Amino acid sequence: MPDVRRSLDSADDEEADDEELVRRTAGGDRLAFDEFYRRTSPWLAVRLRRRCADEDVVADVLQETYLAVWRAAGTFAGTVTAGSAVGWVWTIAANRLVDAFRRRARQQQVPPVPMTETTAPAAEDEVMAGRVGQDLEQALLVLPAELRLVLRAMVLDGLSVRETSVLLGVPEGTVKTRARRARMALREALS
């Protein structure tokens, strides 16, 4: 059973790399988690602000991300080829940000009552817009996970091929291939 109160020398924390801090966090080491947070949270907040101007959403996503890091550090630490801890944290944060956007979209689905007279969109347009959105959502759910991750990184997060490669821990050529396969699968599913 890990000793949560274990005291680490601050010099050990400063010398430890991010992956080591995550491994210690998996063992319940609160000081290692604090050091990992101190190192990564400013960078992560900047990246999130580039994708979302709402400070409340950014703060919520940061909190959810580091809560997930604390709870799931063992999943990162338990993998042999874990990749970079920073990439792992960014993946968690990007997923939490997408979830926040989805929650916001669901909350805003109730259309506001117009205060002035306007012309209503044609019923056919409303049906087609809903159908295309549902079809796209279904097509995305059918994609294999590795293709969805590439799409999420490149399309939703706006990352380049190189950034996606670093984030996912795969070669750039693999990212390009997966992006092409994902586009082809979506095109086929939607046609």
Score class of each variant (00 low, 15 high):
3 D>G: 00
4 V>F: 15
5 R>H: 07
7 S>N: 11
7 S>E: 14
8 L>Y: 12
9 D>F: 09
10 S>H: 15
11 A>Q: 15
16 A>I: 08
18 D>I: 07
19 E>M: 03
20 E>M: 11
21 L>V: 00
21 L>D: 02
23 R>C: 10
24 R>V: 01
26 A>N: 02
26 A>S: 12
29 D>H: 15
29 D>S: 04
31 L>V: 00
31 L>M: 11
32 A>E: 07
36 F>P: 01
37 Y>A: 07
37 Y>S: 04
40 T>K: 04
41 S>L: 06
41 S>T: 15
41 S>K: 11
42 P>G: 04
43 W>A: 14
43 W>H: 12
44 L>K: 09
47 R>A: 08
48 L>K: 07
48 L>T: 07
48 L>P: 07
48 L>Y: 07
51 R>F: 06
52 C>E: 15
53 A>K: 08
53 A>R: 03
53 A>C: 00
53 A>H: 06
56 D>I: 01
56 D>H: 13
56 D>Q: 13
56 D>R: 15
57 V>G: 07
57 V>R: 03
58 V>L: 04
59 A>T: 15
59 A>L: 05
62 L>W: 05
62 L>M: 15
63 Q>D: 11
63 Q>N: 00
64 E>V: 06
66 Y>M: 13
67 L>R: 08
68 A>T: 02
69 V>K: 03
70 W>R: 10
74 G>S: 14
74 G>H: 10
76 F>N: 02
76 F>I: 00
79 T>S: 08
82 A>Q: 01
83 G>L: 05
89 V>L: 06
89 V>T: 14
90 W>P: 02
91 T>I: 07
92 I>A: 09
92 I>W: 00
94 A>C: 03
95 N>Q: 12
95 N>A: 12
98 V>A: 10
98 V>N: 03
99 D>S: 13
99 D>V: 00
100 A>L: 12
101 F>D: 10
102 R>Q: 11
105 A>T: 15
105 A>G: 11
107 Q>G: 13
108 Q>G: 04
112 P>Q: 06
114 P>V: 03
115 M>S: 08
117 E>Y: 05
117 E>Q: 12
118 T>L: 02
119 T>F: 10
120 A>H: 09
120 A>Q: 10
121 P>S: 11
123 A>L: 14
123 A>T: 10
123 A>C: 03
125 D>N: 05
125 D>M: 08
126 E>D: 06
126 E>N: 07
129 A>T: 12
129 A>Q: 13
131 R>L: 14
132 V>A: 09
133 G>M: 05
135 D>G: 04
135 D>P: 01
138 Q>R: 15
140 L>M: 14
141 L>Y: 02
141 L>R: 13
141 L>V: 05
142 V>W: 03
144 P>G: 06
144 P>E: 13
146 E>D: 15
148 R>E: 08
148 R>Q: 10
148 R>Y: 00
149 L>H: 06
151 L>R: 11
151 L>Y: 09
152 R>Q: 11
152 R>T: 07
153 A>N: 01
153 A>C: 01
153 A>K: 04
155 V>K: 05
158 G>E: 13
159 L>V: 05
163 E>M: 05
164 T>Q: 07
165 S>N: 01
165 S>R: 02
166 V>P: 01
167 L>F: 08
169 G>N: 02
170 V>H: 06
170 V>Y: 06
171 P>N: 04
172 E>W: 02
183 R>F: 06
183 R>N: 12
185 A>M: 12
189 A>M: 10
